[in-house]
């Protein structure tokens, strides 16, 4: 062991220099050429930062499209999922309550039309997206509150629907923040 201790210490110091200093520095330098210089892309409206493009934020008002329930309360400095087991009775009660609340706020919508992602919490608590179906099911409510035609809103949702990667891989998504921003500008 004695003959190994000195090389071990020296080797560790070299590793610190290369992997802990040089490598992150290299990526940091490259990041200066990346979108937002690697500081996180923000969404700006009327010269004010209103959010981060990739991070969901809380929408609770009926005149906005709402995102997914969040176990983190959309705290972007404390991401977390609910960690509820699929058979946990308290959790299932909570989901039921969310369904009832959704039905109360969205008259004319059937239970079978509610996509489950609108009543289940996301993995990060910061999911910025909902599915196109989850946006469409809210069109009726938003249209009523905003006095805009449902047709017009459906078009808007379609416009903000991002198709799967390369058109065929993965899911279609709608980023809720840009959609709501566009909604605010629609008049």
């Amino acid at each position: 062991m004695k003959q190994h201790i000195l090389p071990a210490i020296k080797l560790t110091l070299v590793c610190i220099v290369v992997f802990m200093v040089a490598y992150p520095l290299l990526i940091w330098i490259a990041a200066q050429a990346a979108p937002a210089r690697g500081r996180g892309e923000t969404v700006v409206s009327q010269n004010k930062t209103v959010g981060y493009r990739l991070e969901g934020q809380s929408f609770t008002r009926d005149n906005y499209f709402q995102g997914r329930p969040s176990a983190a309360g959309y705290n972007a400095a404390g991401s977390t999922g609910s960690n509820k087991g699929p058979s946990n009775p308290d959790y299932l009660k909570e989901v039921n309550a969310r369904i009832d609340s959704f039905l109360a706020h969205n008259p004319g919508i059937e239970r079978a039309d509610i996509p489950s992602e609108l009543v289940t919490a996301s993995g990060s608590g910061l999911d910025p997206h909902i599915s196109p179906q989850a946006a469409m099911v809210q069109v009726k409510r938003v249209a009523a509150y905003r006095h805009i035609s449902e047709e017009r809103l459906k078009q808007l949702v379609q416009q903000y629907t991002e198709s799967p990667f390369l058109g065929v891989l993965g899911t279609s998504v709608v980023n809720v923040l840009p959609l709501n921003l566009a909604l605010d500008q629609l008049k």
Partner: peptide, 12 residues
């Protein structure tokens, strides 16, 4: 309700 996306609790 509609689970067209599957079990979505804890998923993105």
């Amino acid at each position: 309700i509609n689970q067209q996306m599957g079990s979505m609790e804890g998923k993105e």
